[in-house]
């Protein structure tokens, strides 16, 4: 641990592979994904359902069900091997190093305790401070996430808050122990448009203020564009393209990333046909051979069926996993 220097990335994931045993046989939910995350950096993970974004988050927090899961590869957090952490170390890792926010605040809050108490309890558990200090911290956190009249809100039960406010309270809970890495799993998806943008802006500000690294999972390209420094596009358990948000979202290289962007409806296209990707994402229990996207890909060649393409550099800080990517990007 002492060998760790500030210039190394905060989080380094290498060949992370997650398999599940299911009724229909083993599936590979995550297939050799690798990425680095610098301090204070925001990585957006974009993908459709079943692409492995949420599994990635759960693997990072090590909350996957142990019995049915096999994990290989490595996750290094400040040089520490997360996959080797013992029970006690894990408890401190979750909360002190990494915290997670969810789409549904009800997953984070217990309905029978007040919001203030739950935040304070987390602080007491991780920082071993007094309850008074913990409540003070809880108040500070609610103010930080800009909940109006925070002091009286400490005594609210989760159901007494509106959806947007509960989401803010959950952010306060996650940030109470000042984690170095925040995992955000579609935290704005269930919110109304006018509330969603408020929460995105809040997360963006807090992330800058606290210098905290964030992985933000979303299926919405627009949300990813609003918050990410870099984005990774996932498909069928693999990262197919990664690079700066501006590069990937404005000129995607991988055919899937291109298809995803062209099928995202945006402002000035009324009347035009949407360029939809044909077919549907593969069944993880029944994956096509070679490139998982090849059956839906207009540019697929016979060779695409034979090899699983490895991520290759396609410009500064940019990679794509497609054997045709040279010809595509050109």
């Amino acid at each position: 641990m002492s060998a760790f220097t500030a210039r190394e990335p905060l989080l380094s994931v290498r060949d992370l592979t997650v398999g599940f045993k299911t009724d229909r046989g083993p599936i590979t939910a995550l297939d050799r994904i690798s990425f680095d995350l610098g301090r204070g950096e925001v990585l957006g993970l974009i993908g459709e359902s079943g692409s492995g974004k949420s599994v990635t988050m759960r693997a990072l927090l090590r909350i996957l069900p142990q019995k049915r899961t096999t994990i290989s590869g490595s996750i290094l957090m400040e040089g520490r091997d997360v996959l080797a952490l013992k029970r006690r170390e894990l408890a401190s890792y979750r909360g002190n190093d990494v915290a997670m926010i969810f789409q549904e605040p009800s997953l984070a809050f217990d309905p029978v305790f007040t919001v203030g108490r739950q935040i304070a309890e987390t602080v007491v558990r991780h920082k071993q401070c007094s309850w008074d200090a913990a409540y003070a911290r809880a108040l500070e956190m609610l103010e930080l996430v800009r909940i109006p009249s925070a002091k009286s809100r400490l005594d609210n039960y989760p159901h007494e808050m509106s959806g947007g406010m509960r989401q803010r309270a959950m952010i306060a809970l996650a940030l109470a122990c000042s984690p170095k890495l925040l995992l955000a799993d579609e935290p704005t998806t269930a919110l109304d448009a006018t509330v969603q943008i408020q929460v995105i802006l809040l997360l963006r500000e807090l992330q800058k203020e606290l210098g905290m690294a964030t992985i933000f999972v979303t299926h919405d390209v627009g949300v990813a564009a609003e918050i990410s420094d870099r984005v990774a596009v996932m498909y069928a358990g693999r990262i197919v393209e990664m690079g700066s948000a501006a590069d990937v979202l404005k000129s995607p290289a991988h055919p899937y990333a291109r298809g995803l962007l062209s099928s995202t409806i945006h402002g000035a296209m009324a009347g035009e046909r949407v360029e939809a990707i044909p077919g549907m994402p593969p069944d993880l229990a029944n994956m096509p051979s070679g490139c998982a996207f090849s059956p839906r890909c207009a540019m697929a060649m016979p060779e695409c069926r034979n090899v699983i393409p490895a991520p290759a550099s396609v410009g500064a800080g940019r990679s794509a996993a497609c054997i045709r990517v040279g010809s595509v990007a050109a």
């Binding site: 939809a276 044909p278 077919g279 549907m280 593969p282 069944d283 029944n286 839906r296």
Partner: peptide, 11 residues
């Protein structure tokens, strides 16, 4: 029809 029918071919 070609692209939507493709969605059923896996079945």
């Amino acid at each position: 029809s070609a692209d939507t029918l493709a969605s059923g071919n896996a079945m």
